[in-house]
Simulated assay, not measured.
Amino acid sequence: MSRPPSFVPPPGARAYRLRTARGEFAVVDAPVAAGVEARGTVLLLPGFTGSKEDFNPLHRPLAARGYRTVAVDGRGQFESDGPEHDESAYAQEELARDVLAQAEALGTPLHLLGHSLGGQIARAAVLLDHSPFLSLTLVASGPAQISPSQQQRVKLLRDALEVMPMAAVWEAIQAMEPPEETDTGAEVDAGLDDREDLRRRWLGNKPAQLLATGRQLCLEPDRVDELAAVPLPFHVLSGALDDTWPVSLLDDMARRLNARRTVVAGAEHSPNCEQPSATARALAGFWDTTGPGASRDSAGAV
């Protein structure tokens, strides 16, 4: 589970509901820093059990590089509404079409970034229609299903959701996690109770969304060859210690996509939270080469 250092948007960022042709979505929207030349807009999609707050550490450093960043809760995720029990509403194509509607509402072209599950939803959106986007960045997001050990964790979660209310599942998760994962004393920011914020986020998720997207993570086919045929520049970024998809598998995916590849030292599955400065530098460096007029070759593997 991702653990943002704070659930409070950074100074200058605005939390609101983005109106689209497919409904409203909760976003955190951070403008370009004052006095900095605008270089583009980025749409940020969080991962499974995550939220828009997972990108809070990136907003300020990316604003300083000239990028407006808009992080969004997907349908049925934290502060975005969705059906409680209808899993069909969370089919991957439905979520991908939500992303296209978000892009249309923000104005195009823009850069698209997806973390983990968000990367696979972003990929599906690009395969439906790549025209709204300048580039695609996949953060800790692999070519197909998650690793067997992670599939077991997701299966346990899905089994619990089938028979227990959300609050009881949360308590079970806390009881099962190692002490170093539940002891969040070092992550309290500005007096906030980090654990209570995480609980509030968990309870904001719709059970059907977690069931449907958990199944997607365990069954996702390899669509890398389809994606490679799309005329966009790609960036594959991950932590050096990620085990949700083996790092070697992400290396191979980057080669298949002719993508820029970044491995962030000291980071695991959430480099945006764990090593935000290094992650922001790598992201901005890629986007600097992929604005209007930049060639795909200039953004390729390095």
Rank of each mutant, 00 (worst) to 15 (best):
P10S: 12
E79H: 13
S116M: 08
S277D: 14
A160Q: 11
D183L: 03
A144P: 08
A125Y: 14
P231C: 04
G293S: 01
V188N: 13
V188F: 05
L58T: 04
A278S: 11
S238P: 00
Q174N: 15
Q216W: 09
R68S: 06
D252A: 07
D225A: 14
R215E: 13
G300D: 07
G285P: 03
Q92G: 14
S6W: 04
L237E: 00
M176C: 05
R153M: 14
T41E: 05
L18G: 15
I146P: 04
S295R: 07
A167R: 11
P57Y: 03
F286M: 03
A124E: 14
D129Q: 07
A124V: 15
N258A: 10
P61I: 12
E187A: 14
V236R: 00
Q209W: 04
R195N: 15
V247D: 01
P276C: 06
G47M: 03
E196L: 12
G300C: 05
M176I: 12
T279E: 05
G266P: 02
W245E: 00
S298M: 08
A299V: 07
A282N: 06
L227D: 02
W170N: 01
G291C: 04
G293P: 14
D243P: 00
F48E: 01
D288V: 07
L249W: 08
E37W: 02
F48Y: 10
V126H: 11
L43A: 07
R153I: 08
G239C: 03
V70W: 13
G266F: 03
F78K: 01
A89V: 07
F25C: 03
T20P: 01
A259R: 07
A259P: 02
H115C: 06
L106Y: 13
L138M: 10
L156S: 12
D129Y: 09
A101I: 09
A13Q: 02
V70M: 11
E274T: 01
I146K: 08
L58R: 02
G66Y: 15
L198V: 00
L134K: 04
L249Y: 05
R75W: 08
V42Q: 02
E87M: 14
H59D: 07
A91G: 10
E274L: 01
V236C: 02
G50S: 13
G114P: 10
T69H: 04
T244R: 07
E93N: 11
R14G: 00
R256T: 04
L110H: 08
L95H: 08
L157M: 08
E93L: 10
S141G: 12
D189F: 09
A125M: 14
T290Q: 04
P271W: 00
R261L: 11
E220C: 06
